[in-house]
Write a protein that binds this DNA or RNA. Sequence first.
DNA 1: GCGTCTACTGAGTGATGATTCATTCATTCC
DNA 2: GGAATGAATGAATCATCACTCAGTAGACGC
Lengths: 203, 203
Amino acid sequence: MASPAKRVTSRNSSTDKRAAILRAATRVFAGNGYFNSKVADIARAADVADGTVYLYFKSKEEILHSIFDQNMAEAIAAARKLIKDVSDPREKLRRIASLHLQRLGADRDLAVVFQVELRGSTKFMEEFSAAGFAEYLGLLHDIFEEGQRAGVFRKDLNATIGAKILFGALDEMATNWIISHRNYKLEPMADVVMDVFLNGVSD
Amino acid sequence: MASPAKRVTSRNSSTDKRAAILRAATRVFAGNGYFNSKVADIARAADVADGTVYLYFKSKEEILHSIFDQNMAEAIAAARKLIKDVSDPREKLRRIASLHLQRLGADRDLAVVFQVELRGSTKFMEEFSAAGFAEYLGLLHDIFEEGQRAGVFRKDLNATIGAKILFGALDEMATNWIISHRNYKLEPMADVVMDVFLNGVSD
DNA sequence: GCGTCTACTGAGTGATGATTCATTCATTCC
DNA sequence: GGAATGAATGAATCATCACTCAGTAGACGC
């Protein structure tokens, strides 16, 4: 009770509001698609006025960017942490794949935004690609190369292509999970994919 | 010279106009994205008046649908024809993969529409999925199953998942080819992907 | 209590762009 | 020659939103 509760509340509400708008936007974008979502819808879903949205974000587009940036940064940080103490490249890839599908599987709205909405324009794709996607693919690439040097992965396969194959397979699992409305768990698919992949690329 | 030349010209121009609009729309959508493309842009690119577009298509959305439907139907027909006389399931998959990347690699605008624009909304995804995508995945699935019965593919892998892994890997090759503006050929990637995939799923 | 500050509000504005439809034009047929 | 047909036109309509900004409310220091 040392610090003024009011101050804290105010500060928190400020942060909370930004977060609330992002969460609301994720829900709204997932439900109607980015282009069909009105800023007013997001405001209503976040329980703020239309204008308030613009106190936290420059534009509708920036909201989408922020959703991506924030989650991608989190995901990459989590991935790096997860493999910190692992030495076997195969195990590293297994853990990342699992994390990948676990994160998307845990939040369908977020998954829709990542798998569907963010793909909907070359402009976005290129911008986002430059930032986070490339870094993620780079992470897979580096581990793959490490595995090649260690002699556990075939050396006659370009590491960049190896990374893309793995990413593509996981990506398709996620996209299909969204489209098919059946209720299966996404995360366990990672093991199956890794099984085929590792079997396919092992030396 | 038996039939009146005028009649034929008229008929052709009618068909041509529809085709011209579709071609123009593919170019315009690829350039600006579906939602940022104005019907007026398409009309200008096709060299017709705005209103003419509506003589051939009910709406802007129907244009996008038509691009998908037409190309998907063509692609599936071509794929079936290509594997008609092949008996080895591995070779069937090889040929389809090659066709897949060859078709997209041959027309960058079409590839952009397929890889980017068509993915941009769950609504589209689900509609399209119901139609062509599912059929294509089904084709891969059936061949995979056939290979399992023939004893060339592992039986401990669900055929649907096998099909998705392959599709996802090819899909990522295509998407990456579009985003990276480097000038490499897309089709040859099919062999590399198939190499890893077949190695990963062989019995 | 009073002035100040800051977060917030939501009605209004201006631009945009899909679609329509009255009109023009070319072709065909008698 | 001239009616009839229907393809093609493109200016006008009208709904739709992203974004702005003048104003409100409430917290805080004094």
